[in-house]
Nucleic acid binder design. Structure first.
Lengths: 348, 348
DNA sequence: ATTAGCACTCTATCATTGTGAGTGCTAAAT
DNA sequence: ATTTAGCACTCACAATGATAGAGTGCTAAT
C-alpha cells in the first residue's frame, strides 16, 4: 500500500498530467504543489511509484506519466470527497434545463443525451437506445407487408417503438391480422417481454386442445416475433457524438492515434457488447485503458452509467475520452444525467 | 474550347493524379501515355491549360494538379463512353448479391446500402432514409402516451415506419383513439401524405356541418400529425459509413485536413439540406469541390443518385470522397445501386 | 511547330549540432 | 536515517545546412 507521501505525489502527477499530457517531472511537482520537499526527494518517491507500477517513463530522461494502475488508484482513492465545484454545478443545471425541453420520443431523448454529454464533457458522448426486453408492452400492431411478410410494431409503456419484419409461410389477410393484434393486445398488454415469453411457453403446451385456430396462430406468431427480437438484441442502436472533439485532444495529436480511435468506435457492435456486459452494475462505472476489452481502445477511458424504468435497466449512457480525462468533472456529469433521464422516463 | 491535344493532356494529368496525388510533371505524361510529343511540348500545353484554368501549380517548380474546373471538364467530356470494366462488373454483381439478401425493414436496407457503397468504393458511403411525404399511407395507429400526448405511428406502403409524439389539449382515452385510427385508416389508406393534406383542407371546410364529433376530432388530429411531420423534414436520418476510410486517403494525410473532413460530415443536418436540394434531378449527380455549398467540403466530391417508388423520390444515396476520386468506377456503382434499390422497393 | 539543352527554382531528406528538461547517483547536510 | 545539493549523463526535439531530384521556363536549333 502507498504511504501518505506516495499518494500525494501520485495525485500531483496525475492531476498535472490530466492538465496537459507532457510527462511530469520532479521540479514541476514541487513548483505546483508545495509539499515542502525538494525535487530530489520527489524523484526518489516517483522512482518508488514507478517500481510499484503506478507511474512509467516514456524514456530515461523524461518525466513520469501515470499507468492504468495509477489512474485506477487515483480514481478509486484520491478522488473521494470531491464534490462538484461551482463551475460543474452550472453545467449540471444546464443539462437539467436542456433535458426538460425534450418532450420527444425516447430515442430522440437518448440521441440528444449523447450529444449533450459530448458538449459538456468535451469528450465523446455515448448512449444506447433503450432495450425492449425489460419493459412493459403497451401496444402491438401487425401490418401486412410485401405479401408473405408482416411488419410488427411494438410499443412499450415508455413509448419506445420498435418494428420488425418477419417472414411467414402463408399469407395472412390484414383482417385476420387485425383480429390477432387485438387478441394479443388484450392478452399481453402490461407485461414485460420476458413475462410474455414465459406465458407463451405455457400457453403453447395447452394450445392445441383448448384454443381455436386464431388464437393458436396469434401465439405462434408472437413467439416468432419475440425470437426475432432477441436475435438482434445486440444490434440495438448506439449513439456516439462529438467525433470532432477527438481532434482537440492532444493525446491523439497524430494520425495513427486518431485512426485507432476511429477504428475503435466505428464498429458499434463491439461497443454495444462492451456496454451490455456492464449493464448489471449499479451506479457509475469507470473503465480505464486496457480495462475495457477492446484492443483499439486501450488508450481511452469510459465513464458510464445506466438509465432505468421501473427498476429495469433500459440502456447505458456515458462519456468516452482519453485516459487522462478529467474524471472529477465527468463522473458527476454522467451520474447526474443518468439519474435525470431515469427520472424523466419514470414520468411517462 | 480545348483542342484535341489539350483534352488528351488534361485527361492524362487527371488520370495520373487520380492514381496518386503527386503533382503531375510533363515527363510523366510522356512516359505513361505515348502521345508522340516531347516533354517540352507537353509543358507548353500544360502551361496553356493552366492559363485556361484547368490545371494549377502548387509551386513554381512542381508539376500540375487539376483544378475544380479541370475535374469538371474531365467528368463531363473525357469520361464518356467508358463502360464498366470487368473488375467493376464484378463489383456490381456483388452489390446485387448483397442487396438481394436484405429482406429487412427499409431503414436497414438504406443503412446497409451506405455501408456497402463505402465498402465497394473505398470512400464514404452516404444515404438518406426515405421521406414519407411522397409515399402512400398503408396504416396509421394512435397510442396514448404520457397522459396528454399521443404516439402516432405511420406506415407507408413501402413499409417505412415513422413515429411522432404530439401533444394534446385534452386527454383522449385509448378506446376513442382506436376508433379514430380505424376511421383514418378507412378514409386515407392508399393516399400520399400530400394528397391527404389536400383532402383534409377540403374536409375541414364542410366538417362542422356534416360530420360528428369523432370524425372532426380525427381530422383535426391528422392535420396536426401532418404538420409535425413536415416540420422536421430536415431531421430525416442520414447514414454515413466508412469513416475510417478517410485515413487511407493520401489526400487527407495530415491532421488539419482530416479534421476538416470530419467537421464537414459531423453536422448531418447540413448534409441533408445539401442532398435535399439535389433531390429533384434525374440520374447521377456529381458535385466537385467547391461546387457543393459546404465550406469544409471544398476538398471533396460527391457522386449521388436517388431511389424512388412509384415515380416519387424517396431519398438519396451516394459516395463522398476526395476530389480526385475514381469517378469512372464510382459513377456506375452509385448509378447501379440506386436503380437496384428502386427496383427492390417497387416489389413491396 | 517542335524539341533539345540548360539554368533556375523549389521541396524533401538527411545528418549534424546545440539546447533543455529531466533523471540517477553520490556525498554532504540536517 | 532522511533529505538535499550538485553533477554527470541521457534523450527528444528544434534548428541548421548541405544535397539530391524533380520539374519548370526560356532560348536556340531543328
Amino acid at each position: 500500500m502507498l504511504d501518505e507521501r506516495g499518494k500525494k505525489v501520485l495525485w500531483a502527477v496525475v492531476q498535472t498530467y490530466i492538465g496537459y499530457p507532457d510527462p511530469v517531472g520532479s521540479r514541476v511537482v514541487t513548483k505546483k504543489y508545495a509539499f515542502g520537499l525538494s525535487p530530489a526527494t520527489i524523484r526518489n518517491i516517483m522512482s518508488d511509484l514507478e517500481e510499484l507500477g503506478y507511474l512509467s517513463q516514456p524514456h530515461t530522461s523524461a518525466g513520469r506519466i501515470p499507468t492504468d494502475k495509477g489512474y485506477r488508484f487515483y480514481v478509486d482513492n484520491l478522488l473521494m470527497g470531491r464534490n462538484p465545484i461551482a463551475e460543474d454545478r452550472e453545467v449540471l443545471l444546464q443539462i437539467n434545463g436542456r433535458l426538460k425541453d425534450i418532450n420527444e420520443d425516447i430515442n430522440c431523448l437518448i440521441e440528444d443525451t449523447s450529444r449533450m454529454l459530448s458538449n459538456f464533457s468535451h469528450y465523446l458522448g455515448v448512449a444506447t437506445a433503450p432495450r425492449l426486453t425489460e419493459t412493459r408492452l403497451r401496444h402491438i400492431e401487425l401490418v401486412r407487408h410485401r405479401g408473405r411478410h408482416i411488419l410488427v410494431i411494438l410499443v412499450s409503456s415508455e413509448g419506445i417503438v420498435k418494428n420488425r419484419i418477419i417472414p411467414l409461410r402463408e399469407e395472412i389477410p390484414q383482417k385476420i391480422l387485425n383480429k390477432i393484434s387485438q387478441y394479443l393486445n388484450e392478452e399481453f398488454t402490461g407485461m414485460t417481454l420476458r413475462e410474455i415469453k414465459g406465458k407463451i411457453v405455457k400457453e403453447m403446451s395447452k394450445e392445441k386442445v383448448v384454443f381455436g385456430r386464431l388464437v393458436s396462430q396469434a401465439i405462434r406468431l408472437f413467439r416468432e416475433i419475440l425470437n426475432t427480437q432477441t436475435d438482434d438484441a445486440y444490434s440495438e442502436d448506439v449513439y456516439i457524438d462529438g467525433l470532432s472533439s477527438v481532434f482537440d485532444m492532444p493525446d491523439f495529436a497524430n494520425l495513427s492515434r486518431i485512426k485507432e480511435v476511429f477504428k475503435a468506435i466505428e464498429n458499434k457492435y463491439i461497443i454495444v457488447k462492451l456496454l451490455d456486459r456492464l449493464i448489471e452494475f449499479e451506479g457509475v462505472q469507470i473503465l480505464i485503458g486496457s480495462e475495457n476489452q477492446i484492443e483499439d481502445m486501450h488508450e481511452m477511458s469510459m465513464v458510464i452509467s445506466t438509465y432505468k424504468h421501473g427498476g429495469a435497466v433500459l440502456g447505458t449512457i456515458g462519456v468516452l475520452g482519453p485516459k487522462r480525462m478529467d474524471y472529477s468533472r465527468v463522473i458527476p456529469i454522467v451520474d447526474y444525467t443518468a439519474k435525470r433521464i431515469t427520472n424523466i422516463i419514470s414520468k411517462s
